[in-house]
Every structure is written in C-alpha cells, then in structure tokens.
Design a protein around this nucleic acid. Structure first.
Length: 416
DNA sequence: TACGACTTCTTCACCACAGTAAGAT
DNA sequence: ACATCTTACTGTGGTGAAGAAGTCG
C-alpha cells in the first residue's frame, strides 16, 4: 500500500480495497471493480488523509480530514481540545458508484473544498469517474441515507448492504469507544424499524431483521475489532478453539447456538429494556465496519470464531490464520460467520421472546440458501474463467473444440 | 443397543486449452 | 546480451464417482 495507485502506479490512491489489499485511484477503482460480479462486491473505503496508508474509518468534522484508527487515536487522544472534535464514520461502498453516488455516501465529497482537507479528498473531488462503466450492482435506490431526528445519518437499504451506516459522535462521550461510533447518539429507547441489518439493535424483535438472517451476513458487515473487544470485555483470545464449520450450523441453530444476528438483535432488545449503557458499549464493537477495515488491513487473514459457554459466564474466541485471502472470508458467508451461543450480556429472557415459528422459518430459509449458495472461490485468472465459462462439456468435462458435447454454457438448453 | 440398508452430503478427479515460465537454441 | 522457439505447467467449471455422515427400521 502506498500513496500511489497500486494499479496504474500513476495517480494518487484515493480508496483502499480490503479484498484486493490495494490502494487505488478512482479511475482504477472503477475499472478494476467493474470487471465482474465478484469484484463489484469488494468493499472500499477512502484512505486515511493523514497517513495515506490505512483505510479511513472516521472523519473529523473540525479538521476536515478522514482518519484511520491509528491516526484518529493519535490525533484525538493526545489533546483534550481534540478530544471534543466531532467525528463521523466513513462509509464503505461496493459496486461501481458514480461520483454523484459517492457524494451521497461520503457527504464531505460534495462539500466545498477547503484548505484544511486532505490531498486525497481534494483529488477525490476533482477526479471524474468514467460514467460509462457498468454499475448495476450499486443500487442507490436501495441505499438511501437519511437524517433522523438526532441528526444522525442513517442508511436504509434492502438486501444488499453496500454502504455502512453513518453516525456522528464526539470524542468526549466515550474515548474508549472511539473506534466504534455507531449509535452513540441514538437514544437507547428509540426504535426505528426502517433500519435493517446495521440498525438491527434498534429493532424491537429479532424477526424484523429476519430477512437478512444468514443471507448477506459476512465479516464486512459484522465487524469485530478484537483488540477493542478485549478492552471492552476483558476476554483473552484463545487461538486453539475448535472451528465451527458450516456443516455444524444446522444442528447448532436447532439447539443452543444462535447466529450473531440473533444474539445481536436480542442483546439490543435486552439493552433497550434494561441497560442502555450496555448496548452502547456492545453494539459499536460489532457494527463498525471501519474499525474492521483497520484491523483487517493488518490482520487480513484472520477468520474469527468464538463459541459461547453454556453457563454464559464466559466465552472464548478463536482466531485462525491461514492462507486465505480477503475475498475468502468476505464472501464465504456462513463459514466466516461468527457463531456463538447466547452471549454473556444477553439475558435469558431475550431468547424466550423470540418467536419459535420465526426461528424455524429462518432456519428453513437458511438451509435453502445454503443449498443454493455458491461458496465463491477466488478466481485468479479471469481470462481462464471466461474461457471455461463458454467451453462446451460432456458430463462436465471439457471437450475439444468442435467435438460433440452435451452441455453448452452459452446455450444450456441446447445440446448435441 | 447394534446393525444393515438407504439417503444425503462432501470431496475430488477429470477434461481442453490459453497463458505463463523456464530452458534451449 | 538478446530474440525466438520448445516444453512443461497452471487453472478455469460442471459433472459424476467415491466415500463419509446421517437417518431409519
């Protein structure tokens, strides 16, 4: 990573793609991520305006600069005056948004330039994006950002979450939670059912976010900053726990284990009812995509699992590092899903409030989707894939060009 | 409870061929 | 040192076989 675009090596880099582990200028970002459906799903984040190295996760309104976690901590924890700076989370995006669409994601993108803003952001504003690039996958209709009563921007979106939620907070509220700003301005008792996954904690019942259950869930959306988690809960990472694999999920769902989404929502319900302070402390640790950006940039290969002890008195984490890449954990759905039983912060009453019919429905949908889910592998050579995609086959095997075939990918209904 | 039969699920080899790397000329 | 040619190897996706795992009587 560096200040120059990793792809063209000419333009200054503007955004960071975690899946590609690359810093890109906007033009290359467009061309690279319009290549295929997989690349369109890569989440990108603007680069830190200070170090130009790490993906930014927060924007300081006073300094008008986007900052990574480290720079934010450096800049806002050392001075008491800086501590009160109002900060906003920086949205990630996927697909191929136009400059106008980026404006809606990053509000500062449309603000007037100022001397104080970073070079990156000035260039971001000045650069134009090739509007001819196909950008079907980015659906601004499904992703609208609105302001709630508290002035906190919300992202309403349908099934595809392309934009992380945006919120504001000031460093004085709780410096310890600096890496996790979501919902800190959200009154604990408010309920906004228009919010979906990222806003799940605000929903009254877990069923509200049912449609998203298991489906679009991945580490990009479920962000867990382990270090912060340790700080928050004082747990120690255990690297030797067993991995809960996909095949085990069915039985788990049917018994004691719950999906993170479940626990997440139920925890929020509990927090609404009893302990607003608790949910404020918990939610950000799970919902801050930007902190995951920072984390994954340095711990890119970590796939995290944790299991809950049945006694609810403690839980342990598992961190497995392998040769996987960003795309692996990003896209593999359930395999990257964190599984856990009822967390220690979730009182038993929450689970009891979950309608059994909804759960069974959710499990059924999960199983169906699991069947049809394509666990995408990383395609290293797109050209080879293109050829393979059009190559005729006999019983799945490639046949010589011009030879008899029983399956033509270009015309599946026709065979000879 | 143990066992066999059956079903369901998972893993892997197979195929052709364009592209790449390494070595030879 | 450089260019050209040859050879070996790689990696794509759909299918079926084989084995593992689960279910039922």
């Amino acid at each position: 990573m560096g200040y120059i675009c990793d792809f063209c090596c000419e333009q200054p880099s503007i955004v960071y793609c975690r899946s590609d582990a690359a810093c890109l200028c906007l033009s290359c970002d467009q061309s690279v991520h319009s290549a295929n459906a997989l690349s369109k799903r890569h989440l990108r984040t603007p680069l830190c305006g200070r170090c130009n190295f790490q993906p930014a996760f927060v924007r300081c309104a006073e300094e008008r600069v986007s900052l990574c976690q480290n720079c934010d901590l450096m800049g806002h924890s050392t001075s008491t005056s800086n501590l009160t700076h109002r900060r906003e989370t920086v949205n990630s995006y996927s697909g191929c948004p136009s400059s106008a669409e980026l404006s809606s994601i990053w509000l500062f993108f449309s603000q007037s330039p100022s001397a104080g803003e970073s070079t990156c952001e000035q260039e971001l504003r000045e650069m134009s994006i090739n509007e001819n690039v196909e950008r079907n996958s980015w659906c601004p209709i499904e992703n609208t950002i609105s302001q709630n009563d508290n002035g906190v921007a919300e992202v309403n979106h349908d099934r595809n979450v392309n934009v992380d939620s945006r919120s504001t907070w000031d460093g004085s509220s709780n410096p310890e939670l600096g890496s996790a700003p979501q919902f800190l301005h959200q009154p604990a008792g408010t309920t906004d059912t228009s919010l979906t996954k990222l806003s799940c904690p605000q929903t009254k019942y877990a069923g509200v976010c049912e449609d998203d259950l298991y489906d679009d869930f991945n580490m990009d959306e479920f962000d867990l900053d382990l270090e912060k988690y340790e700080e928050l809960f004082g747990v120690t990472l255990n690297h030797s726990e067993e991995i809960l694999e996909n095949g085990q999920m069915d039985s788990l769902f049917g018994t004691k284990a719950m999906s993170v989404t479940d626990s997440y929502c139920q925890g929020a319900v509990a927090a609404e009812d009893s302990s607003p302070g608790l949910v404020n402390g918990i939610q950000p640790a799970f919902s801050n995509a930007a902190s995951a950006d920072s984390m994954l940039s340095s711990k890119t290969d970590s796939i995290l699992y944790f299991t809950a002890r049945q006694d609810h008195s403690s839980f342990s984490f598992s961190g497995h590092t392998g040769e996987s890449n960003g795309g692996d954990y990003q896209d593999c759905g359930a395999s990257s899903m964190l599984l856990m039983g009822q967390p220690s912060w979730c009182p038993p009453s929450a689970e009891g409030s979950f309608p059994s019919a909804s759960r069974s429905d959710a499990v059924m949908r999960y199983k169906e989707k699991k069947k049809t889910r394509k666990f995408e592998k990383r395609v290293r050579y797109a050209s080879r894939k293109e050829r393979a995609d059009v190559r005729k086959r006999v019983k799945g095997r490639f046949v010589k060009a011009g030879g008899a075939y029983d399956y033509d990918p270009l015309n599946p209904t026709r065979s000879c």
